[in-house]
């Protein structure tokens, strides 16, 4: 499995790279929206975990791009931003590794069953 994990906090990316790569599969990290767009253009991902407040590119544009590439989106939010209906799942900071791993699995299951947002 290949996960695109994008958040502006590098410590968060680093620790989750260790955890998710150990538990789930390859994790490609990005810390801004432009990187996400570039990575999505050049590589294939099974799922994306995107912070709602990524710099440089609007979150709406990122979700639209993910839909175009048929990559399920888990949005990470601080709880203040209105939920974007284009994301397939939401996770509010703070969360623990088991919670995000569980959500990734469930979202992938739903994607396989064709139950995610089109």
């Amino acid at each position: 499995m290949k996960i695109l994990f994008a958040a502006p906090d590098r410590d968060l990316l680093e620790c989750y790279k260790s955890i998710l790569e150990n538990d789930m599969g390859e994790l490609i990290a990005a810390f801004d929206g432009a990187q996400v767009l570039s990575l999505v253009g050049s590589e294939k991902f099974d799922i994306s975990v995107l912070d709602c407040d990524l710099p440089r590119v609007e979150f709406d544009r990122l979700t639209a791009k993910m839909k175009e590439k048929q990559i399920p989106v888990i949005a990470l939010t601080n709880g203040h931003k209105a939920k974007d209906p284009k994301a397939d799942a939401y996770l509010t900071y703070p969360f623990t590794p088991d919670v995000i791993e569980d959500l990734i699995r469930k979202t992938l299951d739903r994607a396989k069953k064709g139950q995610i947002n089109e």
Binding site: A7, D9, C15, Y16, N78, G79, T92, Y93, P94, T96
Partner: peptide, 10 residues
């Protein structure tokens, strides 16, 4: 506080 807490959890 939310993101730092997530990092500390991880």
């Amino acid at each position: 506080f939310r993101v730092p807490l997530t990092v500390i959890y991880a």
